[in-house]
Structures are given as structure tokens and as C-alpha cells.
Computed example of a mutant assay.
Amino acid sequence: MKLEDRMALITGTGGGIGRGIALALAHRGCHLALVDINEDALAQTAAQCRNLGIRVTTHLLDVADREAIRQLPAQVHAAHGYLDVLINNAGVALGGTFEQVSEADFDWLMEINFHAVVRLTRACLPLLHQSDDARIVNMSSLYGLISPPGQTAYSASKFAVRGFSNALRHELEGTRIGVSVVHPGGVATSIAKSARAPGGVTEKEIEEERTRHEKLLRMPPEKAGEIIVRGLEQRRPRILVGADAKAVSVLERLFPVRYWSILQRAIRR
């Protein structure tokens, strides 16, 4: 897929993987509509992308806001005139076992990680159908391949994104819209630090869990963004980001039930 002079809408671009994707696209001459809930972070990403000579608009909104999502495609069309690529990247994390996580927190995470993906995809499909070559890229996770304990809500949301993306790809066969689902491994973003913690868990336990997860986040987000955009260019239906994601993908296919006990032994070693 040739990305020069294409137009991409990306959510969650205030930092991390979203900013990495935006910069990788900007380097290829792709114009951008950037979305985030953090105004200052969004402005920083936009400034970096504009320095590369492309057209950039910023859209400050919460992806859990249904009305804002409904209005967004019209705003993007008014500013740019067309849309070729939709990248549903925005996401949040929530630690804790199923019994620790409240119903309200579980629903909060699903609204952002899954329902926002579905709603924005539905809202943007009419514009994407007008493109001669379009693609939807949805962000799942390593935890959309495996399901570790303590990640019930997060893993559920990322498996939902994976299933939605795969089925949508099959439904859109024969059209000019392709669908990619992304499974990043340990990318050095702030997601662990900003994860919401369940009630009833001590500050010490929260900090220990965050520290443990942060040690696994090693890949620079700029590198992750470049890998994702290369996968977009190659029209890959599944994009695995990092050696850890690739290894886990193989392990889960070989041992779909026993993979967690094998991973635990490896972690202890």
C-alpha cells in the first residue's frame, strides 16, 4: 500500500505507540487526523508530524464519548476531504483478578478498548468505502493471544478486538477495505504506570505489580510504530510486534491449553 498523500485517522496519539505510528506515517508523506484526550500531548505529536511537511489536524476527545465518535468522521472529512486509513490505537489498562475488579471498572475498560473500536469503525466505514485503497488497523495486544491471571478485563477486551477484526476482515473481502489486527509485545509506553488499580489492593501491591510489568516493556514506541506501518504497507492481516509476541504466538498455537504453565516455568528460570 502506497501511503504518500493518503489520509489516516489515528486514536491515542498523545504518546507511546500512537505517536510512533503517527511519525512513521508522516515520514511516508501520509496526512493525519490525530485524536487524544490529553491536549498538551496531542499538540506535541502534531508539532512533530507537521515538521515533516504533511497536513495535520488535531481532535481532542474521549473515545468513550459516543456522540464525539459519531461526529468525528464528518469533522475529518470537512478538514481533509477523504479518509484512507483508520487506526484504532487508543487503550487503557486495568490490573486485578476478576473478583477484585468492580463491574464499573470492567465496563470502563471495555468502553475504551473495545466498544470505541467498534463505534469508530462503524462511523468511518462510509468514508473508507469511498477510498480506492483503504485499511482498518485495530490494536489488540500480547494479551489478545494469551490470557494471564490478573488481566481478566484487559485480556477480554483485546481478545474481543481480535475476534471483531478477524470477522470484519472476512466480511469486507471483495471490497477495497482491508483489516489488520496488531499484537504488540513489551513496548516501552506508560500503559503500566497509568493502569487503573482495583479497590482493596494495597499501594505496595500496586507498585510491585507495575514495576514487574514495566520490566517487560523494552521496545521503543518509535520502533513499534515503524513495524506496524510496515505491516500496513504490506497489507498484513496480523501484525506481531516484537520477538516476545512472535514467540508467544507460536507457543499458544502449539500448546493452546498448557502454554501458561510453560511460560511460568520460563519466567521462574
Rank of each mutant, 00 (worst) to 15 (best):
G163H: 08
F164D: 05
S165W: 02
N166V: 15
N166L: 15
N166S: 15
A167H: 07
A167N: 07
H170F: 11
H170L: 15
H170Y: 09
H170P: 05
H170A: 13
E171H: 02
E171V: 01
E171Y: 02
L172A: 06
L172C: 04
E173L: 12
G174H: 03
T175P: 03
T175I: 00
R176P: 01
R176C: 06
G178N: 02
G178C: 01
S180A: 07
S180W: 00
V181Y: 02
V182G: 03
V182H: 02
V182M: 01
H183T: 04
P184W: 00
P184S: 04
P184G: 02
V187L: 05
V187I: 08
V187D: 03
V187Q: 03
A188Q: 07
A188K: 08
A188N: 11
S190G: 07
S190I: 08
S190Y: 07
K193I: 09
S194L: 13
A195L: 07
A195I: 09
R196L: 12
R196D: 08
A197K: 12
A197W: 14
G199I: 10
G199K: 14
G199R: 15
G200M: 12
G200W: 12
V201D: 09
T202D: 13
T202Q: 14
E203C: 11
E203Y: 11
K204V: 15
K204M: 12
E205K: 15
E205A: 14
E205S: 15
I206V: 13
I206Y: 11
I206A: 09
E207I: 07
E208M: 14
R210E: 10
T211R: 15
R212M: 10
